[in-house]
Simulated assay, not measured.
Amino acid sequence: MDAPNGSQDTEQTLDSQVKAFFDSAPPLQNRNDIIQKLNHFIQLNSLSSENGIGKRIVCVTSGGTTAPLEQRCVRYVDNFSSGHRGATSTEYLFLHLLLFLFLSMKLFLGYLFGDLLEGNEYNVADCVECRYFLKAGYAVIFLYRRGSFQPFCRSLPDDPLLDCFEATEGLNIQVGEAYSKAVKTAIVDHHAAVNSGLLLKLPFSTIFEYLQMLQIISKPMKDIGPRAMFFLAAAVSDFYVPWKDMVEHKIQSGSHILDVKLVQVPKMLSVLRKDWAPVAFCISFKLETDSNILIKKARGALEKYNMHAVVANELSTRKEQVVVVTIDDKITVQRDKSKADDDVENPLIKLLSQRHSAYIEDSKRMR
């Protein structure tokens, strides 16, 4: 009898690891509520628009997962991530689209009423710059770590509640003058995104919550085919303690040695690409501290997990530049240093949305 195929053995091993992970994971709190919100959001944004095509929907993951060491968790292993990349990328997905809608409305009103509207000045070049975001029309599922960086908060201090507000007479408070513009902009942009049905925020803390929620999100995203994108910027735990192997209560500190057995987290990127959402456009991230191995590692992830692109970033320069690695390209993306408030995520989102557009067109031709 022929020896079993090596790739089949690997797939079977991964499938068993995935099954073991989800079978042993604690039940996700508010699971039904999450599914209801998610289905409503995707249904809303999948309805045909004026051009007969539903919006593109992207799942942006952001922040680091924790691996608890106790069931009633006090101690845990954490993954480094501020969530800045995911939150800022989410913001750029909206700001360009909202700016386009705002300018389009001004153009429309100017056409109808002409000189009757005072101060109705607009720059057509701004509309042209934003036009591709109207084509993209992304709605965003923001899967984020509780307490991590949030969209529309780039201009706010680290502790906005205490730094931006000041007490007045009685029980009243007000925004300090120095932060009034930044706070107003953050609030207006955030509510515009949520109220327009373009932003759904879903928080996680543990590796168990994150992977269960990613699986839940993937199922309805599978139905929208190539219009779905996964922007996987979260820093996901590589190792965890299986729930059944954890102690229930806090680990006591009497011993000089803490012996904890960690198990490797199944490589869910492979499962996402193969089973959960095989037609979605998928982008993962590779962070290293050694620039000499960064591109090699990114190419390895690209091939191993069958990603459409891997964003390679070196720890010390990650806010200045990244390298987008694809099957036939290596593109360095840098922030515009002539603009003090520009971020590397701005050109990064433009590039990736263009690549997503090309992917959708290729998918149409292959039908």
Rank of each mutant, 00 (worst) to 15 (best):
G6S: 09
Q321M: 00
Y179N: 06
T10M: 04
T206L: 11
K330E: 05
S353G: 11
R72D: 14
V74Y: 12
K135E: 15
L232K: 01
G64P: 01
N346I: 09
E129T: 13
A192Q: 12
A186L: 03
Q29G: 12
Q354Y: 11
R56A: 13
L98W: 08
S62P: 10
A125G: 14
A233M: 08
S253C: 14
I283Y: 09
F204I: 03
P220W: 04
V271I: 06
L116E: 05
L161G: 04
L302S: 08
F22I: 01
A25Y: 11
T168K: 15
L28F: 11
E11F: 02
A139Y: 08
P26N: 12
T332W: 14
F204N: 11
Y144T: 06
R335I: 11
T61I: 01
H308D: 09
T88M: 07
Y76D: 02
P151D: 04
E118G: 02
H190C: 02
V194W: 00
A234L: 00
V265N: 03
Y132H: 13
G197M: 01
E177C: 06
D290V: 01
A228M: 03
Q17G: 08
I53L: 11
L95Y: 05
T88N: 10
L112G: 03
C127E: 03
G83W: 00
N346E: 02
N292M: 07
F285A: 05
P157M: 13
M246H: 08
K364T: 12
K184G: 09
D328E: 14
P68M: 10
L112P: 05
K339P: 09
D329R: 06
